[in-house]
């Protein structure tokens, strides 16, 4: 099957610092991939390039058969303009570490403003879809509340509903539980698990929750120092790491999370 997302030799530098040093990665439709690795390894940058929040320094990214950062003109690839980016970007959704809800809008409005203005949906249909998604994340009773009135876990669930309403083919999760109080992590992971079980959407999860990665992911990709150091089935990667770097990462991880 054709991959839904393709990275070919993707590099990214911030000034003198090369964060990604040649990433090749294919993601199948409906595949759930967990990106793990030490901080600074470039895992967040990988998904930010896909969401078009950062521009790759070089390399090629494809989404659902279309080049993302390039477009074809007379058979040649030229840098994409904003119009092209908008066309391709519509297939991708993202949930952020810090939620990034719109504080001046109610929960319902947060979930309808994009379908109405970006997809051109009429208000009733958008609200119906928003309510459906908010029910899925268990927040249908908060429609008229503002983000400031919610807990962190609730905000993150709203952020997921807001992204789901757009029906992306690929959903990106950028350390979505890192900013939460420990007791609120569970409710958010539970919702992601449910979304994952529905199946049809590809998901890329940048996470530090190893148990969660093992449960949800079809594949775990370990990044270290800007390259993919090891990847494979969650069980193999997490229980039987081959490279020394992954071994020491998991080791450090166990000691830090058990302390």
């Amino acid at each position: 099957m054709e991959p839904i997302v393709k990275y070919e030799d993707v590099h990214k530098s911030f000034g003198d610092l090369e964060v990604l040093k040649g990433i090749d990665l294919n993601i199948a439709p409906a595949e759930k991939v967990a990106l793990i690795g030490p901080s600074g390894s470039g895992k967040t940058t990988i998904i930010r390039l896909l969401m078009t929040l950062e521009k790759p320094t070089s390399g090629y990214i494809e989404v659902d058969g279309d080049p993302l950062w390039h477009k074809e003109v007379n058979g040649k690839l030229v840098p994409a303009d904003e119009k092209h980016l908008r066309e391709v970007r519509g297939k991708i959704g993202m949930v952020f570490q810090h939620f990034n809800l719109f504080p001046h809008m109610t929960i319902l409005k947060n979930c309808t403003v994009a379908p109405i203005n970006v997809l051109g949906m009429d208000k009733e249909e958008a609200e119906q879809r928003a309510v459906e998604m908010l029910e899925k994340v268990g927040l249908a009773d908060k429609l008229e509340a503002y983000p400031s009135q919610l807990s962190g876990g609730q905000k993150q669930r709203v952020a997921m509903a807001r992204a789901l309403v757009m029906r992306p083919k690929v959903m990106l999760f950028d350390e979505v539980t890192s900013a939460l109080d420990p007791e609120l992590v569970g409710e958010v992971l539970e919702v992601i698990r449910e979304i994952a079980e529905e199946g049809e959407m590809a998901m890329i999860l940048v996470t530090h929750e190893m148990d969660f990665a093992r449960d949800v992911a079809d594949r775990v990709v370990f990044l270290d120092n800007g390259v993919i150091a090891e990847q494979g089935k969650p069980k193999d990667i997490l229980e039987n790491p081959q490279s020394e770097r992954l071994q020491s990462f998991l080791e450090r991880f166990r000691t830090s999370s058990s302390s």
């Binding site: 969401m51 078009t52 929040l53 904003e82 908008r86 970007r89 519509g90 991708i92 959704g93 993202m94 952020f96 810090h98 939620f99 990034n100 809800l101 719109f102 504080p103 001046h104 403003v113 994009a114 203005n117 970006v118 807001r162 992204a163 757009m166």
Partner: peptide, 26 residues
């Protein structure tokens, strides 16, 4: 917040919509 711009990009708003719906009202 910069995250507001990013969320607006992730939801695929046009540049104009980002200003009128998300940034200026805040």
């Amino acid at each position: 917040d910069k995250g507001q711009w990013e969320a607006a990009t992730a939801l695929n708003f046009s540049t104009r919509q980002k200003w009128t719906k998300i940034i200026l009202p805040q």
